[in-house]
C-alpha cells in the first residue's frame, strides 16, 4: 500500500510492493472477531466489468466454479456490494466510474484487482489512456495476477481476502480514508476537472463515519 510520505518513483514503488508492510489489526474483542468471521462468510461482489477480465467472472459465479459456496455472490448495486473487482485494464473514462462506484459502497469494502493490467499496465503499458497502477487511485486489497487469471485463481484470491478479513486486518478502505488527499491528488492528476465532484467523498473528511 502506497503512502504519500513514502517514496515516489517506479523502482521505489516496486520495492514497496514486494515488501509487505506490517499487518495492522483493528479488531480486538470477541464480538469484533465474531462479526469479522460472519463478514468474511458473506461477500457481495459488484457486478461491474471494467475490462476483459470480467469474462472470467461469469464461470466463477455460475455452476462450473460456483463462488456461492464461499458466500460470494453478485450484487446489483454498489450500495449493497462489499467487493469491487477491477477486472483488467482501466481506461481513464472507466476510472471515473470506478471511483464513483467505490465511493458509493458502504464500509467495510474491499477491492480485488484482477490481471496484470491492474498491477503495471500489462499489455497496455504504453497506452496513453489506460491507468497503469490502480493502487494509486483506489486502494487495492488483493491482486490476482495473470492475463487473464483463471476462475480458480479468483477463488484463491477470494479465500485470501476472507482470511484477511477474518484476521481483522486493516482493509484498503482504512487507507483510503486516512490518505484521501493523496488519492484525490492522484485522481486529479489523471482526470483533471473530470474528477468526481467533492460531495462524493467529503464525508471522509467529516471524520467519524457512521
Amino acid at each position: 500500500m502506497y503512502h504519500k510520505t513514502q517514496c515516489e518513483g517506479f523502482q521505489c514503488e516496486q520495492a514497496m510492493l514486494e515488501v509487505p508492510d506490517g499487518v495492522e489489526a483493528v479488531r480486538e474483542g470477541v464480538l469484533d472477531r465474531l462479526i469479522a468471521w460472519m463478514r468474511q462468510k458473506s461477500l457481495f461482489v459488484l457486478a461491474y466489468g471494467t475490462g476483459c477480465g470480467a469474462i472470467e467472472m461469469r464461470p466463477l459465479m455460475t455452476s462450473r466454479f460456483d463462488a456461492e459456496r464461499f458466500g460470494v455472490i453478485g450484487a446489483a448495486t454498489p450500495r449493497q456490494a462489499d467487493v469491487l473487482i477491477i477486472s483488467g485494464y482501466l481506461a481513464l473514462k472507466t476510472l471515473r466510474r470506478v471511483i464513483r462506484s467505490y465511493e458509493q459502497m458502504q464500509e467495510p469494502k474491499y477491492v480485488i484487482a484482477l490481471g496484470s493490467c491492474t498491477i503495471n499496465g500489462g499489455m497496455y503499458w504504453d497506452s496513453y489512456n489506460t491507468v497503469k497502477q490502480v493502487d494509486r487511485y483506489i486502494p487495492v486489497d488483493i491482486y490476482i495476477n495473470g492475463c487473464m487469471p483463471r476462475p480458480e485463481a479468483l477463488i484463491e484470491g477470494f479465500v485470501a481476502l476472507q482470511a484477511r478479513i477474518k484476521n481483522g486486518e486493516k482493509g484498503g478502505y482504512h487507507h483510503y480514508r486516512e490518505n484521501i488527499d493523496w488519492y484525490k491528488a492522484n485522481q486529479r492528476k489523471v482526470l483533471g476537472d473530470q474528477v468526481p465532484p467533492a460531495y462524493t467523498y467529503d464525508w471522509y473528511h467529516a471524520g467519524d463515519v457512521a
Binding site: 462479526i35 460472519m38 462468510k41 458473506s42 460456483d66 459456496r69 458466500g71 462489499d82 458502504q106 457512521a210
Partner: peptide, 27 residues
C-alpha cells in the same frame, strides 16, 4: 444450487448475509 448442479452456500448463509448488513455502515 443443487438443482443447478452446484454445491451452493451453507444453510446459515442468509444469517451471515443479514448480520453482515447489520454491521455495515450506512452513509
Amino acid at each position: 444450487a443443487r438443482v443447478q448442479r452446484r454445491w451452493g452456500p451453507s444453510i446459515w448463509q442468509n444469517f451471515f448475509d443479514n448480520m453482515k448488513f447489520f454491521f455495515k455502515s450506512e452513509t
